[in-house]
C-alpha cells in the first residue's frame, strides 16, 4: 500500500467507525430520544402555555438534548471532515497532529453546538404550539429546498472544500487549527442548517428523514466546487457513480482498448 493510501486509511477508518458508533447509539436508544434530540410529544390537552413549557423541559433536560445533538453531529458530519483532518495532519508536526486535529474538531463542534441551541429552541416552539402538525416541517422542507438549489448554497458548499494554510509552531499553530475548525463549521452550518432542522420538526419519521439527510450531505460533498448558480443540486454525483459502477460491473467499459471511432469526416 502506498504511503498516501496508508495515511488515508489511518484517518478514514477511525472516523467512519466513530460515525457508525454514533448512529448505533442514536438508533438503539429505546424509549429515549428515538434517534435525536427531539422533544417528546406530549398529551398536553388544555394545560396553559407556561405549564406545558415546564413539562417539556422536565421531560427533555437540556443536557440530554445537547448530548443527543452532539451524537447526531458526529454521526452525520464526521465523514465529511475526513479530507480536512488529512490536511491538518499533513501540514502539522507529527508530535502535534492529534492536538491540532482536536482543536479543529473543537472549533467545528462549537459552531454546530451553537446552531444546535437555535435548532432546539425552534423545535421547542413547534412542540409548544403545533406538536402534531406536519406544517412546520413542510415549511422548513420548502425553505430547505429553495436554499438547496440556490447559488448561495453553492457558495457555501464551495467554501467547505477549502484547505487553507496553517502555522506550524506554538500558539499560532493552535490558533490556526481552531480557526480552521470554526471557519469550516460556519460554512458547513450555512450549507446545511435547513437540512438539519427539517428532521427535528417531523412529528413522526425523523429517523428516516435523518438518514436521508445524511445521504444527501455525503453526496453533496462528493461534488466538486463549481460556479454559483441555480441548479438541481445534491444527488447527482451519487447517482452517476452508481450508474458508472453498474456499467463497469456489466463489462460495458472493459480494460481492453476499444478502437477509436473514425475521427475524420
Amino acid at each position: 500500500m502506498t504511503g498516501d493510501a496508508q495515511e488515508l486509511a489511518r484517518v478514514r477508518n477511525p472516523v467512519l467507525l466513530l460515525s457508525a458508533a454514533a448512529w448505533i447509539l442514536l438508533l438503539a436508544n429505546p424509549g429515549g430520544m428515538v434517534g435525536h434530540a427531539h422533544f417528546h410529544a406530549m398529551r398536553s390537552g388544555g394545560l396553559p402555555l407556561g405549564a406545558r413549557f415546564r413539562m417539556l423541559l422536565a421531560m427533555n433536560p437540556p443536557a440530554a438534548l445537547a448530548a443527543s445533538w452532539l451524537l447526531m453531529l458526529v454521526a452525520m458530519m464526521a465523514p465529511v471532515l475526513i479530507p480536512h483532518v488529512r490536511h491538518i495532519r499533513r501540514r502539522s508536526f507529527r508530535r502535534r497532529r492529534a492536538r491540532s486535529t482536536a482543536l479543529f474538531a473543537a472549533g467545528y463542534g462549537a459552531i454546530w453546538m451553537a446552531v444546535g441551541a437555535v435548532v432546539l429552541a425552534i423545535d421547542l416552539a413547534v412542540k409548544l404550539f403545533a406538536q402534531q402538525s406536519y406544517l412546520p416541517a413542510a415549511g422548513v422542507l420548502l425553505l430547505a429546498s429553495v436554499w438547496q438549489f440556490s447559488p448561495s448554497k453553492q457558495r457555501c458548499l464551495n467554501r467547505c472544500h477549502a484547505n487553507t494554510e496553517l502555522a506550524a509552531f506554538g500558539p499560532a499553530a493552535d490558533f490556526d487549527a481552531l480557526r480552521f475548525g470554526v471557519r469550516h463549521g460556519l460554512w458547513c452550518a450555512a450549507s446545511c442548517w435547513a437540512l438539519m432542522l427539517f428532521p427535528m420538526l417531523l412529528p413522526r419519521g425523523h429517523v428516516v428523514a435523518m438518514a436521508a439527510v445524511a445521504v444527501l450531505i455525503l453526496s453533496e460533498r462528493l461534488e466538486r466546487p463549481m460556479p454559483p448558480a441555480w441548479r438541481w443540486r445534491g444527488l447527482g454525483t451519487l447517482t452517476r457513480i452508481a450508474i458508472a459502477q453498474a456499467r463497469i460491473g456489466m463489462g460495458a467499459r472493459t480494460r481492453a482498448a476499444r478502437s477509436l471511432p473514425a475521427l475524420n469526416a
Binding site: L222, R224, G236, T237, L238, T239, R240, I241, A242, I243, A244, Q245, I248, R253, R255, P261, L263, N264, A265
Partner: peptide, 18 residues
C-alpha cells in the same frame, strides 16, 4: 484507465467533424 466519469464525475468529450 476509466477516467473520472467512472467515478460519477464529468466525462472527457470532444466534438469531431460532423
Amino acid at each position: 484507465l476509466n477516467g473520472p466519469a467512472s467515478q460519477g464525475q464529468r466525462e472527457f468529450v470532444m466534438p469531431i467533424p460532423g
